[in-house]
Amino acid sequence: MTQDYEVEFVERSDREARFLVRGISPAFANGIRRAMIADVPTFSVDTVRVIENSSVMFDEQIGLRLGLVPLTTDLDDFEVGDEVTLSIDVSGPETAYSGDLVSSDSLVGPADDNIPIIDLKDGQRLEVEADAVLDRGREHAKHQGGVAVGYRHLQRVEVVGDKGEFEDDETHILRGVIEEQAAEHVDGDADDGDLVLTEEFDSDLTKRYPGKELEVHDVENAFVFHAETDGSLSVEELTLRAVDSIRSRADELRDAVQL
């Protein structure tokens, strides 16, 4: 039996996306979410060789900061455990930024150039060689590609009647994405079946359906993923790699069972 998944992007940019998946079980959705956080490897500085550090911070502190700089990762060309060396050499008075890191491999480099490492005063200097290693978020949070990954049920708002004349006009806050089912009650442009981010109406249902009595229902097996990456991978890559990691484990299990 094949699964009928349906994917639709609600919002999409370089590092952040919201996409709706229909027909997915909660177990599988959560598996994907967990894999996106902990199982998709990214490069991070893991070992540093300090040549000169006359800054006000200890070598270890510099090492930690370098480790937290997201590095672009091309998973087609590297596998877990691979190392790439980067170096940084900055003399004060100047601030050392992540953009000052020079990589030995053009595929691996800082995802952002403007992360401050340390402010160097006159006469201070930082020269470090750093080995970045490809590993998983399970090993250390610095290897997490997905920094904010979650999902919510797709929601459906039902208009069940009018509000009583003397009822309080309290706000009705709802977050996430709704699937329009009552377009005729909405001021302005709306069609049934539209996917609407609640931010569009200030996350307040009374602004979209003024004076109406409402009921909100979760749509079964329809989840809206919201994923943000640290820049080392795109959201698409992160998602596909996460699914792939689950698949490869199932493959491994099947082979092990067959023996």
Binding site: Q3, I32, L240, R247, R249, A250
Partner: peptide, 18 residues
Amino acid sequence: ADRVMEKADDFDAAFDAA
């Protein structure tokens, strides 16, 4: 295990299509 792989493949296909 087969079913998990099937799910993964189908998700991949649906995601790629979108």
